[in-house]
Nucleic acid binder design. Structure first.
Lengths: 151, 151
DNA sequence: TATTGTTATACTCTATAACTATA
DNA sequence: TATAGTTATAGAGTATAACAATA
């Protein structure tokens, strides 16, 4: 029996639990605005990377073009994004943020930051620093090793 | 401008990223068995806490009784769980794991442990220990502060 | 009258496949 | 022939509300 391994299992359990709790802690507040995680993801992507075609959105979000159609339909109905024709390619639809969409992103990011401050309030600066570098290592492993698993 | 706050924002971004990546890293492997996160959650709960009524399952999983009906229908069709009449209360249905259900849980936990070993491989024991205690603090904040947000 | 689990209905996210318009 | 976005269809998770059987 290796006690070291138990520590690792415990750390992973906590990572899982935080992952499961962190999303809802931030996204539950969106429900009143008829927003959802997938929709805020679309709007946020446009805020980060600027206007793009639906095809580019599908690639950026890692989903199908059909899914993008639905998400753009929903956020367009909410007045957060706008469809415009592409200047040269008449097949293509350009999706861009409206002013209301920009407001929604900034309000959501402010809320996420408040949650962050609250969640990390129990740690001093040194602990936050150590946590952050450990998480960076975990992230690298997760991203690097994940593709290998598929093969 | 407070640089300390940037460290905290960075740590939170990494927590979010890990939360978003960790789930799929473990649950994608279930798709071939027609299992899903919600279904494995039900089966795992029965493995942890033993047989219980659907009402108790709804409370334990934090969802509606209607949702439990669907999840039990699906996992029962897969042969992982079984519905039995309650010995005294004829309204109640007792849900319990089958042998195949137990096998599915242990196989899934073994897979999750392999992912854990891979993900934490970049950290030494001391770092794992520090990470784990920092995560415990974050978890406490998350669970304690979350209810306060609602009020 | 309250509780258990169901049917009925609806919304969201997601996917594949077939189709239209355009390149 | 290939690409962009759509309609058609489907499965999964989730919710509320109405209902039947039982307590």
């Amino acid at each position: 029996m290796k006690p070291l391994h138990n520590h690792r299992a415990e750390a992973m359990q906590r990572l899982f639990a935080i992952g499961a709790a962190l999303g809802p802690a931030v996204t539950d507040s969106l429900a009143t605005q008829r927003l959802t995680p997938a929709r805020i993801g679309l709007v946020q992507r446009l805020h980060t990377d600027g206007a793009m075609s639906q095809r580019q959105l599908a690639d950026a979000l890692g989903c199908t073009p059909r899914n993008v159609t639905g998400l753009v339909d929903a956020t367009e109905a909410l007045g957060l994004v706008r469809r415009d024709p592409h200047p040269t390619d008449r097949r293509t639809t350009l999706v861009s943020l409206t002013d209301a969409g920009t407001d929604a992103v900034t309000a959501w990011q402010a809320h996420a930051r408040r949650v962050a401050d609250q969640v990390l309030a129990g740690l001093d600066d040194r602990q936050v620093h150590d946590l952050s570098s450990a998480l960076a290592s975990v992230l690298n492993r997760l991203r690097a090793g994940y593709e290998d698993d598929q093969s």
